[in-house]
Design a protein around this nucleic acid. Sequence first.
DNA 1: CCTCTTCTGAATCGTTCGCTCCATAAATCT
DNA 2: AGATTTATGGAGCGAACGATTCAGAAGAGG
Lengths: 215, 215
Amino acid sequence: MERTIYNASVTERNRGRPRAFDRDRAVLDAARLFWRRGYSGTSTRTLTAALGLSTSSLYAAFGSKAGLFEEAVRTYAERYREIYQQAVAEKDIQTVVERILTDSVHEFTQPSDTHPGCLISSAVMTDSTSTLDTSAYVAELHSSNEQALLVRIERAIQDGELAAGTNAAVLTGLIQSVWHGLSVRSNVDTAREDLLATAQLAHQLICQQLTSPTS
Amino acid sequence: MERTIYNASVTERNRGRPRAFDRDRAVLDAARLFWRRGYSGTSTRTLTAALGLSTSSLYAAFGSKAGLFEEAVRTYAERYREIYQQAVAEKDIQTVVERILTDSVHEFTQPSDTHPGCLISSAVMTDSTSTLDTSAYVAELHSSNEQALLVRIERAIQDGELAAGTNAAVLTGLIQSVWHGLSVRSNVDTAREDLLATAQLAHQLICQQLTSPTS
DNA sequence: CCTCTTCTGAATCGTTCGCTCCATAAATCT
DNA sequence: AGATTTATGGAGCGAACGATTCAGAAGAGG
């Protein structure tokens, strides 16, 4: 019945009084707050104060606190999906592994005023107060990324890029574990160069050993 | 002034009406709730309902919601500290790595009625509403564990157990990343055997390659 | 100009929050 | 036994929560 389509970045109909704040910017700022304080830990008053807008503006633009949260999550989730998709499209498996890890680290540790860290692994899953849809979406994202990587690794094994005995599922699990671990450490304190060094070492160990079928 | 020492597991003075619930058990149950729903996401009413006790009992036993949270965190944190300390005491570095990863996975994935998963990496850091003391404590714990591992790895390099060129700090960071990643994945959906396989592969890649100085 | 549409600010709704109070129950101590 | 100490259960406190409402402000279309 109600056709409240909380308009996305580009306003289609520009009649009426124009919005006084930058919508995309508000989503980014909100994401950073949600990431640092969790969903329940971030009140609407905190949001409106930090974003510099009033309650009614927030609800007019996003419908609800959960709506804003979901949009923030989706915005960042798609970045990680893109990283995976671009990575698995690489020609050799070494580059695939390297890009997944290092590109993600770069994404995790972007200059703080535009980036909230990895909202995806941490804040979402630990707060069941947030909408169930959102956690399902995030679970699907991880599963999707993992699946893409798994398929790519299986192909690499068939192509002889990886040793024949390699267990594709287990290797995928390891890379995913390192990825999640990098995400966690980026949220705590760890410097970008340290994370990159970790990514580099992981890439090196995985590729140098598994490419030579001397196992 | 007030000497409210919310008595720990063993009651020293057993005068007065005895407590009707198992205090330790309540801490475990509370930890599981905090882990799944976050600090702000877990209300005192949820806690009292799940733990089967009344508000006044909870506050008499733990002082406050934050007090119960802190005790839950510390309880589990000490388990991980112990895993690290026992692991770094092992004779050869291969066993050190293996024990840190596999023992932690076992701890992460204990039968669900007694275990909350890794409360430490996730729920605590993402909720700034929880006491600042707690996050500082958790940060110190991670730093302490990492330091213990770093020292052990440096010794292994000196002893020739690891290749001379090995960068101890980076290797420590990788193991920590895998550890955090295993923790995250245990919180989501991943089966114990998959996590163990990841731990095993990580151990294998790290040890087989770095022990032979053919790098 | 006027009308239509949309956004803004303030007040405020009902609910839930963490927490306290108090009368009562159940144990120990003398 | 009585006195003392501690735990329980229920009612309810003030504050903060997410969300709503509405009169007015500010643009666009005619």
